Amino acid sequence: MRAIVPMALAMSMTCLSSGICADYSSGLDAYKAGNYAVAVQEWRALAEGGHAQAQVSLGWLYLNGRGVAQDYGLARKFFEKAAVQGNVEAQYNLARLYYSGQGGRQDYTQACLWYEKAALQGSADAQVNLGTLYSNGLGCQKDDKAAVFWFLLAVKQGHGLAFVKLGSMYEDGRGVTQDYVQAYKWYNLGARQNEKTGEQLRNELTKRMTPAQVDEAQQLTTEWMAEGP
């Protein structure tokens, strides 16, 4: 699973009033200046009042111990408040905490649920992690075709790890017909996204392929890069 995503520093929200916008912006300015304690003060009242982005931001501060003592339980609390309002960043981070068990009970079913909500909103990280849960049968019924579906969606967003995950599915014939040429292509594309695992798996797979297959896979890689996702 990939690391929890950092808090977005760009404000992307609908303000309920100019005063609320100003309060959130003040916290954001303090955060950017490294004045985390001030950011906590600015965002806490907003978060307690139901402001989703402030809840996410405050949750991130508790998660990382910025301006407050690190507290995974409070991080989970604020992420959940924002997640139920449909905030995709909160949904992703809440899923991560359920998966790891930080701040409360470990619950793969809840992790799967919240990853899916974030994935449906287009989070590539959530799509990869959800695909991994389906592939492993953790928190949701094992379903290799569903795993391939989510990996493909993340690939279309250029997510490096998704290329590698998809390559593995083709190499093993899980959810798709086994195809070393396709597996090589996806590993190769992952390697070009600086995923070291993609490079390693591609090189290992090459030992089981004919020169003609490698040439074909290289050509498919070139074509995919030219066409884009």
Rank of each mutant, 00 (worst) to 15 (best):
L161R: 14
L189P: 08
Q106I: 02
T222P: 00
N35H: 15
E48G: 04
N35W: 08
V84Y: 05
Q53L: 05
V128F: 12
Q41A: 07
K81W: 01
S26F: 02
A154R: 00
T109M: 11
R174V: 03
D215G: 00
L94F: 13
A37P: 06
M225A: 05
S57I: 10
A119M: 04
V40H: 10
A33Q: 09
R76D: 05
G59W: 07
Y170G: 10
A22P: 00
L9F: 02
W150F: 12
G50A: 04
D107M: 06
L120Q: 11
A75M: 12
L189Q: 08
Q218M: 14
Q178D: 05
I20E: 13
W114Q: 02
Q219F: 03
R192H: 13
Q200A: 03
Y36I: 07
S17M: 02
G158N: 09
E223L: 14
N87S: 00
S168A: 15
Y180F: 15
M225S: 10
L130K: 01
R44D: 07
G59S: 02
Y180W: 12
G190F: 09
W43Y: 01
Y115H: 01
M169D: 06
L63P: 03
S18H: 09
Y31H: 04
A47N: 03
L153D: 04
V88R: 08
S57R: 01
K77W: 07
S26V: 04
L63V: 02
Y99E: 13
Q127K: 01
D29K: 14
T221A: 06
A146N: 08
A162F: 11
A33N: 03
E171T: 13
S12M: 08
Y170V: 14
L58C: 01
S25W: 00
K165Q: 13
R66E: 12
S57G: 11
G158E: 04
K156R: 15
G167A: 13
D125F: 04
H51E: 04
M13T: 11
F151Y: 15
V214P: 03
G103A: 08
N129Q: 08
Y92E: 14
A39G: 10
M169I: 14
T221D: 06
Y99V: 00
R2W: 10
E80G: 02
R192Y: 00
A52D: 01
A37V: 14
G173T: 07
G190Q: 11
Q70H: 02
A126Y: 04
G137F: 13
L161Y: 09
K207M: 12
L28V: 13
G160Q: 09
G101Q: 12
D179M: 13
